[in-house]
Simulated assay, not measured.
Amino acid sequence: METRLIIGPGLRPAPPPALHAAHCLVIGGWTVMELSGEIDCAAAGSVEWKLSGAIGPHCADLVVDLSEVAFLDAAGLHVLERAHARARALGGGLRLVCPPGPARDRIRVLSGERRLPVFADLGSAMAAGAPPHRGPGLRRNA
């Protein structure tokens, strides 16, 4: 059931919150989760659930592609840091793909690139080390 707000002339309702999407694929032996939209406190729980499903004994190395993320706040960054810690505990790690722009600036300001390895593009992230496993093309959608 949708609730509609009736307002006076010349005023418009605020746009609905931006949705985020996540797709998990295997590319060249790497598990890659592509995120898009806004990763903020409203989306953090959903993103964490999706990352938790991608990281486990079957896959402790993950590349998270933030190329299509328009906004990332502290809650979103904490989700990424927790996923990195889970992956490290399983002997793997998490790499971020984040081209120069607002999201990368936010990562740099809030955590520094010391905690999370950040790469400008997917090719750089995958070239930084050998793939942890080999697998078929498409893995699953998260």
Score class of each variant (00 low, 15 high):
Val63Ala: 00
Ser67Glu: 12
Pro132Phe: 00
Ala125Asp: 01
Arg95Asp: 07
Gly53Leu: 08
Ser52Phe: 09
Leu90Gln: 08
Arg95Pro: 03
Ala128Pro: 03
Val97Ala: 05
Ser67Phe: 02
Val32Asn: 03
Ser124Tyr: 00
Glu38Ser: 12
Met126Cys: 03
Val118Cys: 07
Arg108Met: 12
Ile107Trp: 10
Glu48Gln: 15
Ile39Gly: 03
Pro131Cys: 03
Cys59Pro: 00
Leu35Lys: 07
Glu34Cys: 00
Ala44Gly: 05
Ala103Lys: 05
Met1Gln: 11
Ala22Thr: 07
Val109Arg: 15
Leu138Tyr: 04
Ala18Val: 14
Phe119Leu: 03
Cys59Asn: 15
Ala85Phe: 05
Gly28Gln: 06
Pro136Phe: 05
Met126Glu: 02
Arg115His: 12
Arg106Cys: 14
Leu5Met: 14
Gly10Glu: 13
Ser46Asp: 15
Ala103Trp: 06
Leu19Gln: 14
Phe119Gln: 04
Ala75Phe: 13
Arg12Gln: 13
Val47Phe: 11
Trp49Ile: 05
Ala83Pro: 06
Ala54Tyr: 03
Arg134Cys: 00
Arg12Leu: 14
Ala74Leu: 13
Asp65Met: 04
Met126Phe: 01
Ala74Asp: 08
Ile27Cys: 00
Glu34Ile: 08
Leu25Ala: 04
Gly137Asp: 11
Leu96Met: 04
Met33Phe: 01
Arg140Lys: 05
Arg134Gly: 03
Ala14Pro: 09
Pro132Val: 00
Ile107Lys: 08
Ala128Gly: 05
Ser52Asp: 15
Pro117Asp: 06
Arg115Gln: 11
Ile107Asn: 08
Ala128Ser: 15
Thr31Pro: 00
Leu138Met: 05
Ala128Trp: 00
Ile7Asn: 06
Gly10His: 10
Ala22Trp: 04
Ser46Lys: 11
Arg114Ala: 14
Gly76Asn: 13
Val79Trp: 12
Asp40Ala: 13
Leu138Ser: 11
Ala125Phe: 00
Gly8Val: 06
Ile7Gln: 11
Ser52Glu: 14
Pro132Thr: 02
Arg114Val: 09
Leu110Thr: 09
Ile6Thr: 14
Leu138Thr: 04
Glu34Leu: 08
Met1Tyr: 04
Gly135Met: 00
Pro16Glu: 15
His133Trp: 01
Ser124Gln: 13
Arg82Trp: 03
His133Asp: 03
Ala85Gly: 07
Arg95Asn: 01
Asp105Lys: 12
Glu68Ala: 15
Met1Trp: 05
Ala87Cys: 08
Glu38Trp: 10
Pro136Gly: 14
Pro100Met: 07
Arg106Thr: 15
Glu2Phe: 04
Leu116Arg: 07
Leu66Phe: 10
Cys59Trp: 02
His23Trp: 04
Val79Thr: 12
Leu90Trp: 06
Gly10Val: 05
Ala142Pro: 03
Cys59Met: 09
Leu35Arg: 06
Ser124Lys: 03
Arg106Phe: 15
Ala128Val: 01
Ser36Ala: 14
Gly101His: 12
Leu25Cys: 02
Ser52Gln: 13
Gly135Ala: 12
Ala128His: 02
Pro100Ile: 08
Ala87His: 05
Asp121Gly: 02
Leu25Phe: 03
Glu81Arg: 15
Pro136Tyr: 06
Ser67Tyr: 01
Ser111Phe: 02
Pro15Thr: 13
Leu80Gly: 09
Thr3Arg: 14
